[in-house]
Design a protein around this nucleic acid. Structure first.
Lengths: 147, 147
DNA sequence: CTCCGTGCAAAAGGTTTGCACTGGT
DNA sequence: ACCAGTGCAAACCTTTTGCACGGAG
């Protein structure tokens, strides 16, 4: 992310917090800025290590809580669902519908989606073997519960 | 998965094990069969619970080790990378190259890939908000190390 | 002043490891 | 008989929770 973009995102952050009455603290600003400047999808621990250089008394707990709050506000995205690993007996190419409320994963087999052209060693020397599309949204049960 | 498919997959399993000199045990056969019959992407714990009914002295450790071995043999797939959650400061739609060797995640922005038509409440009442394509393969560094 | 965010410590998962033993080949 | 797979317990790592304090609004 460019420097200007980071500045803009931090301003957005302050606006969102003010609108929702969420206090803006040094920890929050620093954690967000650290994440925006990195492009390596860090773990909570890695962010903790980085931010600790600026705020030595910082607690790991705060990093977890702040990242969680940011994900809730839609300011950052959490990859790799926390919790336990899940296993799939279907090794053919297929896709998944992931419910963001209950974390349920539903298989989606669709031949049209399977025909995405596989990039071949084009991107930064990365050799692609396969792909899978992860659709996020709300499952029927959770929609029913919500309405 | 249909009954016939389960039988076929179990036979494939025995062939693969024999070819690689991997012993076939009751635990392994039962764990694989349990996974093949379920369509809900169970966790190791859930598989443990199911299999324990058939093999009461079964250990959790074995379930973890066997699932791991199966993933290594390509018989099953592990969803949701085990380990720690990762965070992404980029909330715009984008995709990921995931290296299966070092678990590194590289951002991939590609407007053509973004234009996949969003299924709208079509599949089993699931409402899709967004999607992200997960390309798996080997990153440049790991390919270099391998060769 | 009031609350909520923070820090610390302890608990709560989920997964891995060391070691002795058993069971498949 | 041999070696890899298994079971048990303990270690390990990541994440969550309870409680008291302090800083932001």
């Amino acid at each position: 992310m460019q420097h200007g973009d980071v500045i803009r995102r931090l301003q957005e952050f302050e606006t969102i917090c003010r609108n929702r009455g969420v206090p803006i603290t040094v920890q929050r600003r620093t954690i967000l800025e650290t994440l925006l400047r990195r492009h390596d999808h860090p773990t909570a621990e890695q962010i903790y290590e980085s931010v600790k250089d600026h705020i030595p008394q910082l607690s790991r707990t705060t990093v977890y809580r702040v990242l969680d709050a940011f994900a809730e506000l839609g300011l950052v995205r959490r990859l790799d669902h926390t919790g336990s690993a899940r296993f799939d007996g279907n090794v053919r190419r297929h896709h998944h519908l992931v419910c963001t409320r209950c974390t349920r994963i539903i298989d989606l087999e669709d031949q049209r989606l399977d025909r995405l052209p596989l990039p071949h060693r084009t991107i930064e020397g990365f050799e692609v073997d396969d792909f899978s599309i992860h659709f996020s949204g709300t499952c029927a049960d959770c929609r029913e519960r919500k309405e």
